[in-house]
Nucleic acid binder design. Structure first.
Length: 401
DNA sequence: CATCCACAGGAAGGACGGGGGT
DNA sequence: ACCCCCGTCCTTCCTGTGGATG
């Protein structure tokens, strides 16, 4: 009965969305504004495969939401279309290394794609490797896109395997396009792997605010009903994302969430207010998921901070100090008290300081050095977001079950 | 000015678990 | 199967620092 009425009202409700799927961050639009040059470069690199030559390996670097994956997938699609339309023996495959994070998993995924869903799980990796080799021996020129390539644990071995294949092939070839948002990871690689993977390199710059506005406008036109989102709301979402990192992904996510909020409130048009609400919602989600990954000792420290922030009478916080600003020492005392109470082990004060530094890096707390007015040299610590919310979440996390 | 305070944060080293080599 | 090495997490010990205090 309840379920039915929810389904019915969900179904009847008019939404600001025309097609919600088109504004999911995972959706790849046909048009990729401001990435023409990158599309051209990637295409240029892999084009030799269409003439029966081995393309050079390519390394693509760029921060999150700069269009690396979208551009690669876009080019891959066009490449495969062109190859099959013209009956050319060239193919391009995509592997996300976040889930396929070992040599074995990557080889397996590749083999599975090549041999259309035939699974090789359980077979030794040399066998899988031979299978892949066998396939490309039919004069095939194959390109593998390895997304989030820095996640592969033994990348040296994988690259060695894939490049070695070319020595054993006389007609076909194998090339790799590696994608990463981490520049530093290159330094951890073997020199040979590095020079092989980075035969060509391409950097994707972040989008600026104007570009983000254009991108969002295009997307909004696809996903929202006409006039269902205001121009200023779009600009605001773009401005937020530009300020953070020039990340198109979060910009799009903001619009999606803002639309959902508008739907829930049965509004016909998405305004600035919903974008603002979406932003704090997204931020909150990030904070909450961050907290849940913390080790329990660190959760206790954070809990101590939240509890003290809410205390009516901050013990040491004296004249002129903002409410909720705490001393490092009093937090440590509270933490040890709590740890004893819940029969948890207690980390040393030294390690506690590491925890504090880490919490600051995560942006969960804000710290300043004590200046004049306070004796000794210590850190003043303040929670970065709402103490009540943090405390409640931590209570659930720590003692919930 | 010396001294104390209340810490910050570096260095060294111990326990432990996993992954890789033989 | 075994050992070794390495990274992680943590402790102990230590020196440094900026302001208050006598």
């Amino acid at each position: 009965m309840i379920a039915e009425s929810i389904f019915k009202s969900e179904f009847d409700k008019n939404s600001v969305f025309l097609d919600r799927n088109l504004i999911m961050p995972s959706y790849i639009p046909d048009e990729l504004p401001f990435r023409e040059k990158q599309i051209e470069e990637v295409s240029r690199v892999i084009a030799p495969a269409l003439k029966g030559q081995r393309p050079e390996n390519l390394f693509i670097y760029g921060k999150v939401g700069t269009g690396k994956t979208s551009v690669s997938k876009h080019v891959m699609k066009k490449f495969n279309e062109f190859a099959s339309n013209n009956k050319i023996n060239a193919e391009c495959y995509y592997v996300n290394c976040r889930t396929h994070n070992t040599v074995y998993k990557v080889l397996n995924k590749i083999a599975k794609d090549i041999y259309a869903e035939e699974s090789f799980i359980g077979f030794p990796s040399t066998f899988i490797y031979e299978k892949i080799l066998e396939y490309s021996k039919q004069q095939k020129h194959i390109i593998f896109i390895l997304d989030e390539i820095d996640k592969v644990r033994d990348l040296d071995e994988l690259m060695y395997n894939l490049t070695r294949a070319n020595d054993e092939l006389d007609k076909g070839s194998i090339s790799v396009i590696g994608i990463s948002n981490n520049v530093l990871f290159k330094d951890r690689l073997d020199a040979r792997t590095k020079s092989s993977l980075c035969e060509k390199e391409l950097v994707f710059p972040p989008y600026n605010a104007e570009e983000l506005i254009e991108i969002l406008k295009k997307r909004a036109k696809l996903a929202f009903k006409e006039g269902a989102i205001s121009t200023s709301a779009i600009s605001l979402a773009a401005a937020y994302a530009a300020k953070e990192s020039g990340d198109a992904r979060t910009a799009v996510l903001l619009l999606l969430k803002a639309g959902e909020i508008a739907d829930r409130l049965s509004l016909n048009i998405v305004e600035d207010e919903q974008v603002k609400a979406a932003k704090s919602l997204v931020e909150e989600e990030i904070v909450l998921s961050l907290i849940s990954t913390l080790p329990s000792q660190q959760k206790l420290v954070l809990y101590a901070i939240a509890k003290l922030s809410l205390d009516k009478k901050p013990i040491k916080s004296l004249i002129g100090l903002e409410q909720g600003v705490l001393f490092s020492g009093e937090i440590y005392e509270e933490y040890t008290r709590l740890a004893k109470k819940f029969k948890e082990s207690i980390v040393s004060a030294r390690w506690y300081r590491e925890y504090i530094s880490e919490l600051e890096v995560y942006g969960l707390i804000i710290t300043t050095n004590s200046g004049k007015g306070i004796k000794g040299q210590t850190r003043l610590i303040k929670l970065a977001s709402d103490p009540t919310k943090i405390r409640d979440v931590l209570e659930k996390e720590l003692f919930g079950n």
